[in-house]
Design a protein around this nucleic acid. Sequence first.
DNA 1: AATGAATGAGCTTTCATTCAT
DNA 2: AATGAATGAAAGCTCATTCAT
Lengths: 186, 186, 186, 186
Amino acid sequence: MAQTPSTRDRLVTQAALLFQRKGYHGVGMAEILDAAQAPKGSLYHHFPNGKSDLALAAAHFAADQMLQILDASFKDADSLRDGVTTFCYKLAKLFDINDKWIGCPVSATLFESPTNTEFRQATCDIFQMWLDATVRHATSKGATEAKARALADALWMTLQGAWSLSRVRGSSDPIKTVPALVLRDE
Amino acid sequence: MAQTPSTRDRLVTQAALLFQRKGYHGVGMAEILDAAQAPKGSLYHHFPNGKSDLALAAAHFAADQMLQILDASFKDADSLRDGVTTFCYKLAKLFDINDKWIGCPVSATLFESPTNTEFRQATCDIFQMWLDATVRHATSKGATEAKARALADALWMTLQGAWSLSRVRGSSDPIKTVPALVLRDE
Amino acid sequence: MAQTPSTRDRLVTQAALLFQRKGYHGVGMAEILDAAQAPKGSLYHHFPNGKSDLALAAAHFAADQMLQILDASFKDADSLRDGVTTFCYKLAKLFDINDKWIGCPVSATLFESPTNTEFRQATCDIFQMWLDATVRHATSKGATEAKARALADALWMTLQGAWSLSRVRGSSDPIKTVPALVLRDE
Amino acid sequence: MAQTPSTRDRLVTQAALLFQRKGYHGVGMAEILDAAQAPKGSLYHHFPNGKSDLALAAAHFAADQMLQILDASFKDADSLRDGVTTFCYKLAKLFDINDKWIGCPVSATLFESPTNTEFRQATCDIFQMWLDATVRHATSKGATEAKARALADALWMTLQGAWSLSRVRGSSDPIKTVPALVLRDE
DNA sequence: AATGAATGAGCTTTCATTCAT
DNA sequence: AATGAATGAAAGCTCATTCAT
């Protein structure tokens, strides 16, 4: 049943991975096309605005993946603590199997320049989506609305920092310390 | 008494600023040369290895600046809480006067590609320098060695994330929440 | 029927001519692009490795031209002496109509540096191709295999030197003395 | 008694070697200065016209060396054949100890472009100097003036070609065949 | 939807040279 | 005689994009 992914899908998948590793300006179109095994000219059919369209699509794709990991982590969790911990350890594993060098798939992809408002807005929207989902999961595990919001904020901010530190140190340990840091009050 | 800075110094200063805003690959040599009012050919006299040498020098320069802000914040602080808070608010102000779009000056400058071990090592060294200084300040304000270490780790990791979030939101608020997050146990 | 040559063909032709006159390092890409009336970016579409790819293509193109001149010289020749003499005089004419400043199209193009093994191997292959063809023509005119080999060796070595001397003196006379030098035993 | 060579001498020696290996355009001033351990700014004191002056000095220096080898080869020679053979074998040895990649020190250094008349004239003068010396040695060994001239012409032309072929093949064998080729009539 | 050639602005870097000291 | 900083033109090459088919 496993179909060969379409050219468009391959482009998005590979772009997401590459941008996440080397940043928007660190990846060239040729590299993406090569990784996706896509012919040179076909890109602008799928993404009329070229690289920026592709980056946005890649960021949204990666954001959805992240959301799925979050949902899966909380689905079978017995507690808030359990859900957060599972989520962070899943991300730590993802980090390890990606050469210990991936960061937040969205900020790595969409931090392009101070003046790119389209990218900034998209990043903001995605972060809000993640925060909202986290709040939902936290309240479903018994947290108050206020506590859920505070936890979600702390979780995602700390995760951003943990990704940076993990890359620098070449170890997923910082990511694994996130639950302890954000759940101290529990 | 204020002397005109040397060409080399102007290059480092401007490069530090630009890399911090747009990342290593997001800044071209021409842009740096232009900002530093330096002629094209003179760069490779001071930095034989070109852009990468300049980026390393810029990162170390920015790292020292950060250290000075840290030292100044703790010098007149009455307590650990006071020092951390002053430090974060100084950074928040720095963020605001820089178009609300600067991140960690080191990771923005030296996150180039997974395989660049020289950059990764330099980043690691600078982070350690920051952590060591923070531990020193914390113990001098009465914290135990263990507590000082834990605080330093949490502070710098959370700061990394706060910078990201502040950029996304166009507001220094996330940076200002860092003290509360890392000092909850005090 | 004469079609406009393709961009690729124009690049190869002009590159062959320019390299032959000024050597690999003496010709810039801009000069070749200009001579071929080709836009800057198109070169790396046809020659992904840039200048070195183009030089190899140019050398092979020039080598084939040389082979055609050799074949034509021997085709209607009544004797070995006749073929060799016709060949050298054709080359002398070519030298004269090229500002009296062209050398061996292959060594001028591919003598780049001692460590460039790819260029050295290509040069070696082309020389062998010329030698083999010469041996074939010589035997077809009645020479023994051994004599044919000795003649081919002497011819091409002497020709190399004659080109050098002709350039220095600004006269095709040295080239015209080659038949006498290599056919003394006939 | 062995003095440290002057900066000027070191520049000429190293330039001669480098030009001979990589050609005039294949060697940069920085490379020469580095090889000669000479400070950047001092070159234009010794060679006001820069690279071209240095190349001319290097070519003349190498030409004199060649003349000394020629003289030494004929000084103790019992016959014309003996002198020519010794000379070629000395050159073959020189070729071998120089990574099997040196050519005529003069044409490699001074073949710059078709329009450089100063270089062309210098090359012509040096070749004439070599030819004259060879004629002198040949007549001193009993050859007639006419025979001596013919031999000198053949010797130097064949040598030029032999150097090319030796470089291509990475073997001094072609150089060693020169005596046989030019002395067939003896 | 797909293709490969074309495009020229832009990239980082190297060039031979000149300057003030 | 020597020095190292300065200089900008030019080097070879890559860029994201567009075009005709």
